[in-house]
Amino acid sequence: MIYNPKTYATIPVGVVIRRAPGVTRWAAWSWRAVSVMPGAGAADWRELRRDGDTVDYHAATAQMDLHGAETEAYLQGISARVPSVYVVMRQNVGADAASKPFHVVLVTASPFEAQDYADTGEEIVEKVAMPEGLVAWVREFVDAHHQEETFKKRRRDKTDVNRVEDGVGDPRIHQLSDVYRAPASVRKGRVH
């Protein structure tokens, strides 16, 4: 897909992930995305704040993209009671998993795109409150590119849906041929 630069915008967004003590004996730690930082620089699990056992990390910075074709989704997202962005993460496996348990896959302002990722069940999708500056940036983009779709009424075909076909498919009524066979198999009035 080719994007028109006039209907495309991007901004770096830092993702803050909080590690807190787990609430059950089966999970030592609870991890969740708690905030985003628009315009953040690159980061790789840099510690931001520590309060006892609770630690906030600037885990990663991802590019948040806005596309002119998705303005309906952005409009729904910023019109919510609490405008939000969605952080899509995938659990790391291997040697780094202990110090960097998640990889940030995507940051999006589209609730529809976030739902697509949530439906797969392979990623973790966290809803995070959108900072006011980011709300203003998304709203400005939507105002510039959103076009309401005109409603088009479909025309119905003229098929009579209430028509009764006596005997079609009824095994008690003798048929010359199989009524479910494709019409191409009946040629010149003969049944094959």
Rank of each mutant, 00 (worst) to 15 (best):
R181F: 12
V164S: 09
Q147V: 12
V179C: 13
G133Y: 06
G121H: 07
Q147T: 13
R156H: 15
K158C: 07
G133C: 06
K152T: 01
K152N: 08
G169I: 04
G167Y: 15
L176W: 10
K153Y: 09
D166E: 10
I124N: 13
R155Y: 06
P183T: 05
H145P: 00
D170I: 05
D119M: 11
A144N: 09
D116T: 09
V142K: 08
V125P: 01
K153E: 15
V128Q: 02
M130G: 04
P131E: 00
L134F: 03
A136V: 01
G121S: 08
E149T: 05
P131S: 00
A144S: 09
V168I: 12
V168R: 09
E132S: 00
Q115G: 06
D170P: 11
V125C: 05
E126Y: 06
I173P: 02
Y180A: 14
K127M: 11
S177K: 15
D170Y: 11
P171R: 04
V128L: 01
Q147A: 10
A129G: 02
F151E: 06
D119F: 05
V161E: 08
D178Y: 10
S177M: 13
T159D: 13
Q115L: 12
D166N: 13
F141S: 00
G133M: 04
G133N: 08
E140H: 07
D143N: 15
E165L: 12
K158G: 05
D166H: 09
R155W: 05
T159Q: 14
G167R: 08
D178M: 08
E122Y: 13
P183R: 06
D166G: 15
I173F: 14
G121I: 06
L176Y: 11
T120P: 00
V128S: 04
V135Q: 10
R154P: 12
E165P: 08
K152Q: 11
P131L: 00
E148F: 11
E132R: 01
G121D: 07
Q147F: 14
D119I: 06
K158Q: 07
D170E: 10
R156E: 15
E165Q: 11
V142H: 03
V138M: 07
N162I: 06
R154Y: 15
S177I: 09
F151T: 01
M130S: 03
H174C: 05
E148Y: 12
R139M: 04
D157L: 06
V135K: 01
R154Q: 12
D119R: 11
A182N: 15
V164H: 13
E148D: 15
V142R: 06
A144Y: 03
D143S: 14
E140S: 02
E123H: 14
F151K: 08
P183H: 04
A144I: 01
V138S: 07
D116P: 01
V164G: 03
D166M: 13
A129E: 09
R163V: 12
A129L: 02
M130Y: 02
V168H: 07
D166L: 15
A129C: 00
F151G: 02
D170Q: 06
V138W: 02
T159K: 14
